[in-house]
């Protein structure tokens, strides 16, 4: 699974992307975020507030219950501020 981080999530976590292999019980966005918070203090801090963490699965906005699988590209980022 390829994870991408943008904006302050990238600077807080300290990397722009990484390849991860979550345990089998990580099947949706909510369980992925829960698992990631346990990966270290930088992850826990950056992902602490669900309301400001947006998730895209394969470049589509996703909700907490949407499925994730090993070959997905998953991006985590704060609410967008373009325009």
């Amino acid at each position: 699974m390829r994870l991408l981080y943008f904006a302050w999530l990238r600077s807080q976590i300290g990397i722009a992307e990484e390849e991860v292999t979550p345990p089998d019980d990580v099947r949706d966005v909510a369980s992925l975020l829960a698992w990631m918070r346990g990966r270290g203090p930088a992850y826990a801090a950056a992902l602490a507030d669900d309301r400001v963490v947006k998730v895209a699965v394969n470049q589509e906005f996703a909700r907490a219950g949407d499925p994730v699988s090993p070959n997905d590209e998953i991006a985590l980022f704060p609410p967008v501020t373009g325009g």
Binding site: F6, A7, W8, A56, F61, A75, F77, P78, P79, V80, T81, G82, G83
Partner: peptide, 29 residues
């Protein structure tokens, strides 16, 4: 314009005298 401000994945980092500040999304958007 209204939709791209809330759907297109862009983020603004402003350079201010206090350093770089990520712009926060506005509820009004």
């Amino acid at each position: 314009v209204d939709w791209l401000k809330t759907r297109a994945p862009f983020w603004k980092l402003e350079e201010t005298p206090d350093g770089g500040q990520w712009v926060e999304a506005r509820a009004s958007d």
